[in-house]
Amino acid sequence: MSEIERYIAPKKLDDALEALAGGPVTIVAGATDLTPQITGGKLSYKATLMNIQHIEGLNAVTKKGGTKKDGKIRIGALVTVSEIRGNHMLKNHAGILCQAADHFASEQIRNAATIGGNICNASPAGDMIIPFLALGASAELARWQDGSIETRSVPLDEFFTGPGRNMARDDELLTAVTFDVPPENSIGLFRKSGPRPALEISTVSMGISGELTEGTLKNVRVAFGAVGPTALRGKLTEAALEGKILNQEVIQAAALAARKDVSPIDDIRATKWYRTHLIGVFTEELLNNVCQN
């Protein structure tokens, strides 16, 4: 553990970004991922420790516009998993997020863990990443450039570059996650493995979203967790479903495609065989649930 020379807890985003621009900074919010990594020796503190919990404007869930093309939902980086779990607007418009939040760690962790932290930590098994990928969400990154804030938006399926790694530059702060308000006929389902409801690192996890019109799925997005170096989109599965009428044949084809989409490894939590097997099982299960509802 290296020494912390400076501790700051800015209230303004400007100040936070300016500090980030000024040199090596460890960013902390809920600390639920950071602390174990520090104590486990996997990470050490940089010279400046910046607590971003007090930055104004990063802790809101907002919806602008409706369910037509113009609508956007914005979830501030400091919104906690508990807040997502209990958010009525999200339950109505993006229930898959609330489902994932419900299966996230434990109540105490959910109360502290932030969306920004879970995404930036870029775990292949990050439970909140899956529903965001399925929703086609983007990360909003901000930095200090020539005396003002400059932001860019990176689609989440391009954001993750490896286990624990992401595209954000050292001077950038993830300020929010945004996605289009899903249309009225949207479906969204999340599934995670394990006999425990939540306190379980996913052996695999999966999310699926899309628009369902008269039995046909469109704009399908499928995301898988813990089956590769990053959480990933299931492109073959999506192709197997896009524009198809959901029937057992299509579901079977999708399950087969899902097994091809993933490239899991053997580790102490599961073998490649089991992870691949579960992906097929979950794909079938979720699509059958779509059919039944």
Binding site: Y7, A31, T35, N51, S82, Q108, I109, A112
Partner: peptide, 20 residues
């Protein structure tokens, strides 16, 4: 487990500095 601002958290994870 303790309660901070009415919500429970794991105090082993939370940084003391954040109690301000």
């Amino acid at each position: 487990t303790i309660e901070v601002d009415g919500r429970t958290i794991n105090s082993c994870l939370m940084m003391a500095a954040d109690l301000q």
